[in-house]
């Protein structure tokens, strides 16, 4: 079974992928919650426009999203130049850029999962909490958020899984630099482009499957435990 041993470069790709996916998931959680809450509960002009923009990465070809990111967050892009100058944050051709691309691509999935579970919360429970003296912020923290938790977890897992598999936007935005921006899918793609790369591609494919399955099983177990604790009436 020696052919299963990963080379140092392959390990690099695996580690980088997990790092990128984790950051993408964690960083998109706060804005994801906010946008989901806004879409589920907010009444404001332009709500469908916000909804459309959030869902855009789902419909656009990933290459287009990646190119748009390059235009905006690239060194010469308006946002990219601003961030680099004032905060020293650089996205282009860095792993941070890969994380940004993955976060954007997974964002609609996360928002959707959280939004649906916020909409499923019985608002009468919130009204009851209000009559018991809880102001709207406390109602959100003690009633809405705990009841939304299964959806939040599902959204996080979806975002993570999407990030693990993201290819088009990432390679367009930050290219395919081993050790910096070469995530699992990029590495697999590279293997398929060189003669004799089949074994490497297969190894990384197996790793991909294992990580995705592990994430899925973990989320299932977690939401089952939450579900048992809550026993919705």
């Amino acid at each position: 079974m020696e052919w299963l041993d990963l080379s140092p470069e392959e390990w690099n790709a695996v580690r980088l992928s997990i790092k990128v996916a984790t950051w993408a998931m964690v960083a998109s959680l706060p804005p994801g919650l906010l946008i989901a809450l806004l879409l589920a509960r907010g009444k404001f002009w332009g709500k469908s426009i916000v909804n459309g923009i959030v869902h855009l990465p789902l419909i656009l070809p990933p290459v287009v999203t990646g190119y748009l990111l390059l235009l905006t967050f690239g060194r010469r892009g308006p946002a990219g130049a601003f961030l680099a100058e004032h905060f020293g944050i650089v996205f282009s051709f860095r792993w941070t850029g890969a994380a940004l691309a993955c976060a954007i691509m997974g964002f609609p999935l996360m928002v959707r999962a959280i939004r649906l579970s916020i909409e499923a919360v019985d608002r009468r429970l919130e009204a009851a909490a209000g009559t018991l003296g809880a102001n709207p912020i406390w109602v959100f923290l003690t009633i809405t958020l705990p009841l939304t938790l299964p959806g939040v977890i599902a959204g996080m897992i979806l975002s993570f899984a999407k990030a693990m598999g993201e290819f088009g936007a990432t390679i367009t935005f930050v290219s395919n630099i081993p050790g910096e921006t070469q995530t699992l899918p990029s590495a697999i793609y590279t293997f398929t482009q060189v003669p004799g790369g089949d074994a490497g591609a297969l190894r990384l494919t197996l790793v991909s499957i294992v990580i995705s399955m592990a994430a899925l099983i973990a989320s299932e177990a977690l939401s089952r435990r939450l579900g048992r604790r809550m026993d919705l009436e």
Binding site: L125, G130, N135
Partner: peptide
């Protein structure tokens, strides 16, 4: 005065207990 500042107890038709 918003409801959380009225200090009024409210028992609804349905119990509305917090399931979590």
């Amino acid at each position: 005065v918003p409801k959380h500042k009225r200090r009024i107890g409210y028992v609804f038709q349905e119990p509305r207990l917090f399931p979590h």
